[in-house]
Amino acid sequence: MIAASELTKRYPGGREALRNVSFTITAGEMVFLTGHSGAGKSTLFRLLAAIERPTTGAILINGQNLASLRRPAIPYLRRKLGLIFQDRKLLFDRSVLDNVLLPLAIVGLPRKEAEHRAQAALAKVGLTGRDQTLPIALSGGEQQRLAIARAVVNRPAILLADEPTANLDTASAGEILAIFRAFQQVGVTVLIAMHEVPSLAGPPVRVLRLEHGELCSESK
């Protein structure tokens, strides 16, 4: 479960990126976080990923308050999250397989087992047979699918994605969202930050709308 309470983020210089934001996302839910550029979506994403800390307020992820989380505990929290970035953050000098293996190497999984799990993750996102390819040889949509494979390889309970379909054509964007929907259907909590709510097959999803750093509406 994700719960934000009275969340405020003020940057040096006084700019307030988020103001008194509160919401709750239950386990297995799929939520879209929308808003125009500068509304605070990426700031909220960074707070949820423990990349930044809130100025005031609390963020609870599975009962753990990120606002008071000690620095050495942050990597262990991130292992429980699947993070997908707008710029993908792939290692372009490593193969597709090595990119997916990275989180497993970090937790110390034996190579053979890690490879097995990495191949399974690649299969889930439709990149079977591309394991030895360099990411530079993949299309934008494939690169984003690779980023998703890396995010899910540790079997996280929560997936956080920041603009995962940015710069993708409609077909590729649809495929990426379908992958997220598939993970939600097996119980993974999914929070996606996007400009607009896309049309998505299946049950309705909840939408949190941010404007000028404030949560202005919530709808299904």
């Binding site: 990923a49 050495p72 991130r78 292992r79 970035f85 953050k89 792939l90 290692l91 990275l102 970090i106």
Partner: peptide, 16 residues
């Protein structure tokens, strides 16, 4: 630097 940043984002500790 880029590789270290990615590793940290996917859960690498300073020790790792």
């Amino acid at each position: 630097a880029a590789e270290i940043e990615v590793a940290k984002l996917v859960g690498a500790t300073d020790a790792w």
